[in-house]
């Protein structure tokens, strides 16, 4: 039982309240700086200059399309091939969302359980570290051999990539013990389960959101990578297919879709973190 027989002490640093959380590590933290119409205008103008300048330079030096297509060509490919690419985006999203959900759930549960048993944590730690540092893409050929060219190997790969990321961050959150707050709950007779749900879990929430964000980006990476290895569908499959046919505008259109997808995932978790874990900042 925590804090039952330790010397009672309070310290501000105890809670590790140095301000972790999605809102702090986020590049979007610059958001509130944008205030006036003028700021927005400047941002738009810079974007236009960058894209327009690229178009102009590629024209000026007559760079061949197979080296680098012009932004206008990419945009055209995006529009004309949109309905063809869309189902592939759908496949990627299915793999990402189901793999991520499974991985994140298992990661969260494992994090919550192992942090309750410090000794078990020490035993498991090296394996978790191995799972985090090993690129799960390496397993995809094996998974395809075992499970075929369908969704299954990709979902497993995504779960294996996202899960450990969620787990390692969530565990950091669950480990942030504030003995004062636990003593408070215990002074009302709280059970271990109540302490978990009402003290530990809320305290871990900011780190959990960091884990979900990093895990989902790793999941996207792994999903696309797995699609490139084998199977006839998904955005990764489109990338290998377009590049083998030197259809560079289409290739970059897919890259553009992927970066927009990544940004949307990032923004989603940023907003969720801001809504549910903003008390820390």
């Amino acid at each position: 039982m925590e804090s039952t027989d330790a010397i009672p002490q309070f310290s501000k640093s105890d809670a590790g309240s140095g301000g972790v959380g999605v809102a702090n590590m986020s590049a979007l933290a610059a958001g509130p700086g944008i205030q006036s119409v003028r700021d927005v205008a400047i941002i738009v103008i810079v974007a236009v200059i960058v894209v327009g300048g690229l178009e102009l330079l590629l024209n000026l030096f007559s760079v061949p399309q197979y080296v680098m297509p012009k932004p206008s060509e990419i945009a055209y490919a995006l529009v004309t091939d949109f309905w063809f690419i869309l189902p592939h985006l759908g496949h990627t999203l299915v793999e990402l969302s189901s793999g991520f959900t499974i991985g994140a759930l298992v990661g969260l549960i494992l994090a919550a359980v192992i942090t309750q048993f410090p000794f078990a944590e020490k035993i498991i730690a090296p394996y978790i570290l191995m799972l985090v540092t090993t690129p799960m893409l390496a397993l995809v050929p094996l998974l395809i051999l075992r499970f075929g060219f369908g969704y299954t190997p990709r979902i497993i790969a995504v779960a294996l990539a996202a899960g450990p990321m969620v787990m390692i961050n969530a565990a950091t959150g669950f480990r942030r013990v504030d003995s004062g707050k636990i003593a408070l709950a215990r002074s009302y007779g709280a059970s271990t389960l109540q302490i978990f749900w009402k003290i530990r879990a809320p305290m871990a929430l900011p780190m959990i959101f960091v884990g979900l964000m990093v895990g989902s980006i790793f999941g996207l990476l792994t999903a696309v990578g797995a699609e490139m290895v084998g199977g006839g569908f998904g955005l990764g499959n489109r990338l290998t297919s377009y590049s083998s046919m030197i259809q560079m505008p289409q290739f970059f259109a897919v890259v553009l879709i992927l970066s927009i997808l990544g940004i949307l995932i990032y923004v989603l978790f940023f907003l969720l973190g801001k809504k549910f874990a903003s008390w820390e900042t």
Partner: peptide, 27 residues
Amino acid sequence: IGMVFQDANLLPWRNVQANIAFPFEIM
């Protein structure tokens, strides 16, 4: 027995009302 701790020891993710309701939630 009611206990008042060193520094207020409020739960930062709860507003004032929810902090005061905390003992009742536990009980």
